[in-house]
Design a binder for these strands. Structure first.
Lengths: 229, 229
DNA sequence: CGCAAACTTTGCGTTTGCGCAAACTTCTGG
DNA sequence: CCAGAAGTTTGCGCAAACGCAAAGTTTGCG
């Protein structure tokens, strides 16, 4: 077990109101694990045996259609809980979680969930806020998919990624994990071809710089404009 | 105040595990109100002053884009709680609720929420199950919007409506509240024209019968097939 | 009873973005 | 250092669905 201490969890939403001993106790019951890029943390429809906290990296939450197409529902940034099926009364995971970059997660057996909720004041509340945010995001996704054109959807998707995991570099803001055109297409409900064409065009205009698996937004302001009113 | 008794709430999820006196107490604090078709129960981004239980009718949960287009996120069937922003740590409503048919709702001031959760065992759990179901539905919507063609989306939307509020009639199963092509288009992210064309075609094939504001699915099995694998 | 409003149908031209195909570039492992 | 895998670019043709327009139908209200 790697050395972990209270200061790690302290700033994160579900733990912010707990005292050191509580956090210590929670930490002691956790398992830490490193994930390679592309590896699966848990799979849709399997028994929700654990819930997770992402310490480092980014998780892609995907669903796979009967035709085998992948759809990315959500990206989880470092510092958030995920796989918390139990909080919504489910006993299987509703989607698959894939590591978008290498990363580290803590996990606890799901059976501890109810105890944490009962024992630690504010734990549930903070968790439900996170879920609330995700519901909001999903809602926004539905609205976007219903009303916007591919160009706007891709612009917004990039902005979301930048906001969640952007790193400042000299040329602009870079998305903090490796991402392919295919990935972007799965987030926006389009094809990698269309994404490629669009990114090429944007690069010519100086809006972005894109290398293999890497996208840097140079002109966020103009990107926002493209994203729609 | 109309006469309400325990038997009304008893069978509904959040109350199923409470005893008569608890339900009585909850009921005593509620306000009952009738809504006309098309009237707004609450509006997006306004302070979440109440939460609601739909006793009769159907609620359409919509978001309005900056361009003024409406997108229907969800339909709430009779018997469910809604407007429970508080449960997800929000203090404003994330969407607008419109009565799709006339109906009756009970409401409580939001400040009572935390008390209910604390006081009544199982109340929160059951509520979160409902939310979990809705999250699942939204997820499915995203996947559909990403991967399916208009025809499939409309087929599925109709099936969802039929499942939620279908009434058996001699010709098939009829959607239990008035619904226009416009409404269907707002559920599926398309235009009323496309919906009209498609429904006309389906009617010619005997798949459905549609009158003004009324749709009856005659051949649900074939409709499922149209909805995709 | 008649008019206006709400809802529906249908036609036609246009466009967006997909599907397919092929070539090209960058990485990785032996 | 080379071969193959993984990722990207680009061209071309096509079909789904939109946008616009106009006319038809049903309903409710005065």
């Amino acid at each position: 077990m790697p050395k972990l201490d209270e200061s790690l969890l302290r700033p994160l939403p579900p733990f912010s109101k707990l005292d050191d001993s509580a956090i210590r106790a929670i930490l002691d019951q956790s398992t830490s694990r490193r994930f390679e890029k592309g590896s699966t943390v848990f799979e849709e429809a399997t028994a929700a045996e654990s819930f997770f906290l992402l310490l480092d990296g980014t998780i892609r939450v995907v669903r796979i259609t009967t035709e085998g197409e992948q759809v990315t529902a959500l990206h989880i940034p470092a510092g958030q809980l995920f796989g918390i099926a139990r909080a919504l009364g489910r006993d299987t995971y509703p989607a698959t979680a894939v590591a978008a970059s290498e990363g580290v997660v803590l996990s606890w057996p799901t059976r501890l969930w109810d105890g944490f909720v009962a024992q630690y004041e504010g734990f549930a509340t903070e968790t439900y806020k996170t879920i609330g945010d995700r519901v909001g995001e999903m809602n926004t996704r539905i609205v976007e998919m219903s009303t916007q054109h591919v160009e706007q959807r891709i612009a917004r998707a990039l902005l979301r990624l930048v906001k969640q995991s952007g790193k400042k570099v000299t040329e602009g803001i870079e998305i903090g994990f490796p991402i392919t055109r295919q990935d972007v297409s799965e987030m926006t409900g389009t094809t990698l071809h269309t994404v490629s064409r669009l990114l090429s065009a944007w690069e010519k205009e100086g809006l972005i710089i894109s290398k293999r698996k890497k996208i840097t937004v140079c002109d966020p302001h103009r990107m926002v404009t493209l994203g729609g009113t």
